[in-house]
């Protein structure tokens, strides 16, 4: 038996919106400690990770570990039937064939219930080792989304250069080229404002990435004020969005390399 309650449906809506463009179907692994998901896009270029801890839910029960295969488009459609501040409960019995999702209004005078069919999904999973990143950029997620949008008007690939001075995003295309530099601030405090950027660096590092994937990652911006971009030479770049007090979404993106 699985039962999980979130006080606001908007959070679950944002989580599903953040990953459904990248993966159409995914296995949700429920255990005593919470919910985990690992999924790759069809081209195996981007890897999405979701972790939601049990203590982030207002109620959480998982009698034994269970994997639920869910079509994310269907999940998203059902979640659109919830008001943002509805309480949402998800429930599945052992060996269930569907996931029960119910919404209760804040006044508790309206309760709706939907069932989404579960499916067997055969997916490739990978082991991601702990890595010592050479550079970590911490910046506003809104700023990240804006840069991705701006760069996409020019090119298809983006180069991220992290140095002690800051982080530079650049692109080029048929129409021309462009770059945006965010200068490093030593401390992110109120004076600097929430839009400031910090770069923790051991060694300068540069990566070229396909912009269309970053546009998908930027869909997680409504979940978190900040995004961290973790870079290491010859390894996928990791983008992390923290989900308030309950977990995170991480995206790993395989780089483009010079032949």
């Amino acid at each position: 038996m699985i039962e999980a309650v979130l006080p606001q449906a908007s959070l679950l809506k944002k989580i599903i919106e953040a990953i459904k463009e990248l993966v159409s179907e995914a296995n949700f692994d429920f255990s005593e400690t919470g919910i985990r998901l690992q999924a790759m896009d069809k081209s195996h270029i981007a890897l999405s990770f979701l972790h939601l801890r049990n203590d982030g839910f207002s109620e959480y029960r998982c009698d034994r570990s269970q994997t639920l295969g869910i079509n994310l488009e269907s999940f998203s459609k059902v979640l659109k039937c919830a008001a943002n501040d509805d309480q949402v409960q998800i429930k599945a019995t052992d060996k269930a064939e569907s996931l029960s999702i119910s919404f209760e209004s804040t006044a508790k005078d309206r309760v709706s219930e939907f069932n989404v069919k579960l499916m067997d999904i055969d997916i490739d999973s990978v082991d991601v080792p702990d890595m010592d990143y050479q550079a970590t950029v911490n910046m506003s997620s809104q700023e990240f989304a804006r840069i991705v949008r701006d760069m996409m008007t020019i090119g298809e690939a983006i180069t991220i250069d992290a140095t002690k001075q800051g982080v530079k995003f650049s692109t080029s295309g048929d129409a021309g080229e462009g770059n945006i530099l965010l200068r490093h601030r030593k401390t992110i405090d109120e004076e600097d404002g929430p839009s400031s950027t910090s770069v923790e660096i051991n060694e300068p590092v540069s990566h070229s990435l396909a912009l269309k994937f970053l546009a998908n990652f930027a869909k997680a911006a409504p979940l978190a004020d900040r995004v961290s971009i973790n870079l290491i030479e010859d390894a996928p770049v990791m983008f992390e969005f923290k989900i308030s007090d309950m977990g995170h979404i991480r995206f790993y993106l395989a780089p483009q390399i010079e032949e």
């Binding site: 270029i45 010859d234 390894a235 395989a254 483009q256 010079e258 032949e259």
Partner: peptide
Amino acid sequence: ARTQTSIFSFFSTP
């Protein structure tokens, strides 16, 4: 020219 790598080039399957 740049070539797109895959996640499998870096992370192995369990």
